[in-house]
Structures are given as structure tokens and as C-alpha cells.
Computed example of a mutant assay.
Amino acid sequence: MAFIANRPLGAGFSAITFIAGLVAKITAWNDARVTRTSLSRLSDRELDDLGLVRGDIDDIAAGTFRR
């Protein structure tokens, strides 16, 4: 008995989609790392001028900072 399918083998999975997702995650990680490093280099006075404290740095880098 033969089996006929409408979808090609591997439908729903694409190597391009996987690679694009991986690149996006690496890019987001690097952006957070650069942001965290840049803000950590500022003095407490400079952070205060921006309305921030040291404890805000991780939230800002993660994109979860809310005022």
C-alpha cells in the first residue's frame, strides 16, 4: 500500500530558520554584554545623571527595565 502526503519531508523545520534564530540569540546576547560593560564603566555620578543606579544595569541589559 502506498502512502501519499501533501507536505514534503521535514516540513515545519528549516535549517535557515534554525540558523537565523541562533544568530538572533547570539546578537541579543552580545548587545546585552556590550550594554552591561558600557554602563558598568560609568561612575556612580554619571549613572545618577542618567537617573540610574548600579542595580538597574542588569535589568537594562536584559531589556526588562521599567520606571
Rank of each mutant, 00 (worst) to 15 (best):
D59R: 14
F18G: 00
P8D: 12
G51P: 02
A5F: 15
G10I: 00
G21C: 05
S38D: 12
R33P: 01
I4D: 07
N6R: 10
A61D: 04
S14G: 03
D56A: 03
A32H: 03
G55M: 08
I57H: 03
T27N: 15
F13V: 12
S43C: 02
L39Q: 01
G10L: 03
G55S: 15
G21I: 02
V34A: 12
F3T: 09
D49T: 15
G63N: 05
L42Y: 00
I60Q: 04
I57L: 05
G55W: 04
G55Q: 12
R36G: 05
L47G: 04
R36L: 13
P8Y: 07
L22M: 08
D44Y: 01
T35G: 04
R7Q: 15
D31Y: 10
S40M: 12
F18K: 12
A62L: 09
L47D: 01
R54Y: 03
D31W: 07
T17Y: 06
A61M: 05
G51H: 00
A5W: 11
L39R: 04
A2I: 11
G55Y: 02
I19L: 05
L42D: 01
D31H: 14
D48E: 15
I60M: 03
I19C: 01
S40A: 11
D58F: 07
F65W: 14
P8T: 09
I4Y: 08
I16W: 08
S40Q: 13
R41Q: 10
S40V: 02
A5H: 10
M1E: 13
R36N: 09
L42M: 11
A28Y: 05
T27I: 12
W29Q: 14
R7G: 11
P8M: 09
L22E: 11
R67P: 15
D59Y: 08
I19R: 07
D31G: 12
L22P: 01
I4V: 14
V23P: 00
S14C: 03
A28F: 06
R41I: 03
A15D: 08
F65A: 09
D59Q: 14
A11H: 14
F13M: 10
R41H: 09
F3E: 09
L39W: 00
L9N: 09
D31V: 11
D58A: 15
S43F: 01
S14V: 00
V34F: 06
D59C: 07
F18M: 09
A62G: 03
I57T: 04
D44T: 05
R7C: 13
